[in-house]
Design a protein around this nucleic acid. Structure first.
Length: 813
RNA sequence: GCGGAUGUGGUGAAAUUGGUAUACACGCCAGACUUAGGAUCUGGUGCUUCACGGCGUGGAGGUUCGAGUCCUCUCAUCCGCACCA
C-alpha cells in the first residue's frame, strides 16, 4: 500500500486525542522539561511562521517525552488586541465572537499539524478568568506603588487611537500599523520598570550562552545604563528675578564630568518647565515662542531628522566651580524625558554641542589636551584649563570630579537609564479593563478584589471613533469601592503585553486550581524556568523584556518564589521567506499551511521546515524542496517491506560485509547526532541529513537484520519530526516498542576493517591509501610514500605526519 | 555613529571544532522503465584546462606540517538602536 498521509495522520491524531497523550503528569518528583513556543495571536489562520515555530518546539517536546521526562508543552491564545476591533469595524462582528471563532479554527489547524500540546492547559487571555487574576496582580502592584497614574507626554497613534509604550514605537512609527506616532500630553497608567532596570540588566549575564547574544545585546542597549554626574546649575540672581522667584536652579546630567570646565552654555528641552514659565510670563519674543511651539509639536522622527535649532532664553546660570556666568538656551535636540531635560554643553568635546555652538557662534573652551577649537575632540587626554584638576588624565578625573562635587555638596554621582517606565494604558475596547475607579471624594481607588473580574460590557458599538468603553452609556458608572458614592470606572484597558508577561506561570499552574488562584507557587516552582522558549526575534525587546520584568515583580510581591528569570533558554527562529522577502498577504507571497497539509500531509510540512535551514536562520521557501521532503517520507514508508523482524535484532557485526557495516555505521552516526541536535545545536537539518544518509546506505545492502535494525532506529529518531508516519510504521513493524525507550549507541559499529586515508604532500592532497585498521605507522607511511611517489621524485622528505584515521602529510623540500 | 550577526557550488546548506572542503537536499545533465510523464529508478554535476595540471570557502596578510575553522587588517550585506548629554 502506498503512503497515504491524510489517512495516517487523522488516525494518529485521533488516537493521541483519545489517549490524552500529551498531558503532563501531576507527579512532581519526575524530571521535568517545560518546552514553550510563543503563543499565537488568533488572527484567523496559521501562517508558515507558526508552522516553523511549533515544529521546532514540538520536536523538542516529543524528544524529551521519549526520554521519559515529564513534559509541559502548552499552547494558548494571545487573544486581546486591535485586530479584533478592526474586524468589528470592517465586518461588524463582535470582537469576542471574532476572536473565539478564530481560535476554534486555528486550534483545528494546530491539531492537523500533529502538535503535541497539552489540551487541558489551553486558555485565551481574553477569558474572563484570566482577566480576573491579571487584574488582581495589577491592584497589588498599585498598592505596592509599582503602578501609578500620571499625566505626561506619550506616544499617540491616531490610527490605532491609542497610546503606545516606548518599546512599541519603531523608527517613530506604530509597531502595529506603521502610522507615524505623535507626541501628546495625557494621563495614563505606568509600571515602574525603571526601578528594575539595574536588575534586568544585571541578570542578562545569567542568560549568556543560553539566549542569543543578539537579544542580550538589544536588551542591554535598550536599558541603556550610563553613569555620570548630576548637579544643579544655579540661575543668576537676575534670572531668578526674571522668573519671579519660581526657579532657583535646574538639574543636568552628564557622563563627562571631566569636561566640566569646558561648559560654555547650557540647553533646555522645549518642554522644560523653565521654558514654559518664560513663555507664560511673556518673556520671550513672539517668533521664538512660535518656533518653540513648532518644535514641541513635531513628532519624534521629525525632530530627529531636523537640523539643530535653538534659541537664547535670555537667562543665565552660574558655573558651579568657576563662578562664570553661562547663557541658557533651548534646543530641539535636548530630550525632555532624559536626564531632567537639560544639558551642560561642552562644544569642544561633544559633537552635538559643537555643531550647535558653531551654528550660533557660541564660545569654545578646550579642556582636554588634544582638543582644538575647530572640532569636537572626544578622545582621551590630560585635563587643561581645569584649575585644580589640571594635568589629570580625563578618564581618572571623572571619578575625582564626581567626588569633589559630592564633597562640596554641589551634586552627586548618578546612574541614568534610557529605559522609560512602561505605559500600559490603551484607549481601546478589546483588552483587559484596568480595575480602578475615579471617585470625586477618594480619588483613584482600586476595585475590590472580590469584585473581579471587571469584565468588558458586551453591548458596545465599535466604530473606530473614540474609546468604546468611554462611549458606552452606563458601563463606566459604578460605586466607589471605598466610600460607596457614585464614581466613574477607568475606561482604559491594559496593553496586551501585560497578558503575555505572565502566561508562562498560568500554564504551569494546574488547571484544577485555575478558579481559585492565578498562579500556584508550588506548581510554578516545579515547572519553571521554561527549559526552552522558542519564538521570533521581533520580541527581543518587547515581550521578552516585559515578561522578565513581570517575573521579578511577581516574585517581589510574593506570587512566585526563587525565580529570577522566566526563560532559561531561548531560541529565536528565523523568518520564513519567499523569493527573498518576508511572506505577507500584501505581497501575495504566502504559502497556506492548510493547502500544504492537504497536498503533502503534516509530516512533510514539518520535515521540510526543519530540513531547509537551521532554525535560527531565515528559511527560504522552495516548492520543489518540499517535494523532496515528501519523497523522503514516501521512500521511508516504502522500505517497511524490508523489515522482517519485529524487534531490535542482535547483530554480529564482524560477520557483515562492507556495505552492511557501512549502513550500520551510518545509522548509529545518526543516533549520535540526535543527542547533540536535540539537546544542544537544534540543527535539525543535519540530523535529517544524517537519517537520509543512513537510509541511502541501508538501500545499498540487503541484510534483513541490518534493515530491521536500521528502520527501528530511524523511526525512533525521526518520530519527533515526522510523528505520524513514524507512529504508523512503528506500530505495524515493531508494536511501537522502538518509540518507548532510548537507543544506545553501539560503538563497535564504528570500527572498520580498513581505513581510507588521504595523502597530502606539503598540505596538498595528492593521493589516497587504504590500510588495515590496526596498521602500524611505518606501514601507513610506506604505503603513503608509494601512493605519491611521483611527487617525491628528486625531493627529500623533511617531515612525516600521520593523523590517525584521517590523513598523512608528507613535507618535502 | 553604537551594538549584533553573516559571507562556502546554479540554489538551500554541511564540515566530528585545526586534519581528505562542498555531506544531505533542490536544480541541472545523461541514461533506464514507459503510449506518455511534471511518476519512479540509476549515474554524473565546484571552476578552469584537450590533457598533465592549476585554482578554489568575500578580499589581503599572518601563525601552522596542515586554516572554511585561529590572529591582524579590509570589503560587502543584513538586523537592532540611534541627537540618551
Amino acid at each position: 500500500m502506498s503512503y497515504n498521509p491524510s489517512e495516517i495522520e487523522s488516525k494518529w491524531q485521533k488516537i493521541w486525542d483519545e489517549k490524552g497523550a500529551f498531558e503532563p503528569l501531576d507527579d512532581q518528583q519526575l524530571e521535568k522539561k517545560y518546552i514553550l513556543s510563543m503563543f499565537p495571536f488568533p488572527s484567523g489562520r496559521l501562517h508558515m511562521g507558526h508552522v516553523r515555530n511549533y515544529s521546532i518546539g514540538d520536536a523538542m517536546a516529543r524528544y524529551y517525552r521519549k526520554q521519559n521526562y515529564n513534559v509541559l508543552h502548552p499552547i494558548g491564545w494571545d487573544a486581546f488586541g486591535m485586530p479584533a476591533e478592526n474586524a468589528a469595524i470592517k465586518h461588524g462582528r463582535h470582537p469576542k465572537d471574532w476572536t473565539y471563532s478564530n481560535i476554534d479554527y486555528m486550534r483545528k489547524e494546530l491539531n492537523a499539524l500533529g502538535l503535541s500540546f497539552s489540551k487541558t492547559r489551553e486558555f485565551a487571555t481574553c477569558d474572563e478568568l484570566y482577566t480576573k487574576w491579571e487584574q488582581s496582580f495589577i491592584i497589588k502592584m498599585f498598592e505596592s506603588k509599582l503602578l501609578f497614574r500620571e499625566s505626561t507626554t506619550v506616544n499617540w497613534c491616531e490610527d490605532c487611537h491609542t497610546v503606545l509604550a516606548n518599546e512599541q514605537v519603531e523608527e517613530g512609527c506604530c509597531w502595529r500599523c506603521d502610522n507615524e506616532v505623535e507626541l501628546k500630553e495625557m494621563p495614563g497608567y505606568y509600571l515602574d520598570i525603571v526601578k528594575y532596570a539595574d536588575e534586568l540588566l544585571e541578570d542578562l549575564k545569567e542568560l549568556e550562552g543560553k539566549w542569543p547574544t543578539q537579544v542580550l545585546g538589544m536588551q542591554s542597549n535598550w536599558i541603556g545604563k550610563s553613569q555620570g554626574l548630576e548637579f544643579g546649575f544655579k540661575l543668576s540672581t537676575k534670572s531668578q528675578e526674571k522668573l519671579g522667584g519660581a526657579f532657583k536652579s535646574f538639574e543636568v546630567f552628564t557622563t563627562r564630568p571631566d569636561t566640566i570646565y569646558g561648559v560654555t552654555y547650557t540647553a533646555l528641552a522645549p518642554e522644560h518647565p523653565i521654558v514654559k514659565a518664560l513663555i507664560k510670563a511673556g518673556l520671550l519674543a513672539d517668533d521664538v515662542v512660535e518656533a518653540i511651539a513648532n518644535i514641541a509639536n513635531m513628532s519624534e522622527i521629525e525632530r530627529a531628522k531636523a537640523n539643530k535649532e535653538g534659541y537664547d532664553l535670555g537667562i543665565s546660570v552660574i558655573h558651579p566651580l568657576t563662578g562664570e556666568t553661562i547663557p541658557v538656551w533651548t534646543a530641539n535636540f535636548v530630550l525632555a524625558s532624559y536626564g531632567g531635560g537639560a544639558v551642560m554643553s561642552v562644544p569642544t568635546h561633544d559633537e552635538r554641542d559643537f555643531e550647535f555652538a558653531k551654528q550660533y557662534n557660541l564660545p569654545l573652551k578646550v579642556v582636554v589636551d588634544g582638543g582644538e577649537e575647530g572640532s569636537a575632540y572626544t578622545g582621551e587626554g590630560k585635563l587643561i584649563n581645569s584649575e585644580l584638576f589640571d594635568g589629570m588624565k580625563n578618564v581618572k578625573a571623572k571619578a575625582k570630579i564626581i567626588t569633589y562635587f559630592e564633597e562640596q555638596g554641589l551634586g552627586k554621582g548618578t546612574t541614568n537609564f534610557k529605559l522609560r517606565n512602561w505605559g500600559i494604558s490603551r484607549q481601546r475596547y478589546w483588552g483587559a479593563p484596568i480595575p480602578f475607579v475615579h471617585c470625586d471624594a477618594c480619588g483613584l481607588v482600586a476595585e475590590k478584589v472580590e469584585n473581579l473580574p471587571i469584565a468588558l460590557p458586551e453591548d458596545v458599538e465599535i466604530t473606530g471613533e473614540g474609546n468604546p468603553l468611554e462611549n458606552h452609556p452606563t458601563w463606566k458608572n459604578c460605586a466607589c469601592p471605598s466610600c460607596g458614592k457614585d464614581a466613574i470606572r477607568e475606561t482604559d484597558t491594559l496593553d496586551t503585553f501585560v497578558q503575555s508577561s505572565w502566561y508562562q506561570f498560568r500554564y504551569a499552574t494546574h488547571p484544577s486550581k485555575w478558579e481559585t488562584t492565578g498562579i500556584d507557587r508550588e506548581d510554578v516552582n516545579y515547572w519553571l524556568g521554561v527549559d526552552q522558549y522558542i519564538g521570533g526575534i521581533e520580541h527581543a525587546i518587547l515581550h521578552l523584556l516585559y515578561a522578565r520584568f513581570f517575573t521579578k515583580v511577581l516574585r517581589d510581591l510574593g506570587f512566585i518564589e526563587n525565580i529570577k528569570e522566566p526563560f532559561e533558554n531561548l531560541l529565536t527562529q528565523g523568518m520564513v521567506l519567499m523569493d527573498g522577502s518576508k511572506m505577507s498577504k500584501s505581497k501575495g507571497n504566502t504559502v497556506d499551511p492548510d493547502g500544504l497539509i492537504a497536498k503533502y500531509g503534516a509530516d512533510t510540512a514539518r520535515l521540510f521546515t526543519l530540513f531547509a535551514a537551521p532554525p535560527q536562520k531565515e528559511l527560504e521557501w522552495n516548492d520543489s524542496a518540499v517535494e523532496g521532503a515528501f519523497r523522503f517520507i514516501k521512500k521511508l514508508y516504502d522500505r517497511k517491506s524490508k523489515v522482517t523482524l519485529n524487534s531490535l535484532p542482535t547483530i554480529e557485526h564482524s560477520r557483515l560485509n562492507k556495505e552492511e557495516k557501512l549502513a550500520r555505521a551510518k545509522v548509529y552516526e545518526a543516533v549520535k547526532k540526535s543527542t547533540d541536535v536535540y539537546e544542544k545545536t537544534f540543527a535539525f537539518n543535519t540530523l535529517i541529513a544524517s537519517c537520509m544518509e543512513a537510509l541511502n546506505a541501508l538501500d545499498k545492502q540487503k541484510n534483513e537484520q541490518v534493515w530491521s535494525e536500521g528502520m527501528y532506529i530511524l523511526l525512533h529518531l525521526l518520530e519527533p519530526i515526522t510523528p505520524h508516519v513514524c507512529a504508523e510504521l512503528s506500530e505495524v513493524l515493531f508494536n511501537s516498542e522502538n518509540l518507548a525507550h532510548k537507543i544506545k549507541v553501539l560503538e563497535e559499529v564504528f570500527v572498520q576493517d580498513t581505513i581510507t586515508l588521504g595523502v597530502s604532500v606539503n598540505g596538498k592532497r595528492r593521493g589516497e591509501i587504504e590500510v588495515e585498521s590496526g596498521a602500524s605507522k611505518e606501514t601507513i607511511l610506506e604505503q603513503a610514500r608509494a601512493s605519491v611517489a611521483k611527487w617525491l621524485e628528486n625531493k627529500s622528505i623533511v617531515k612525516e605526519i600521520v593523523v590517525p584515521n584521517k590523513l598523512v602529510n608528507l613535507v618535502i623540500k
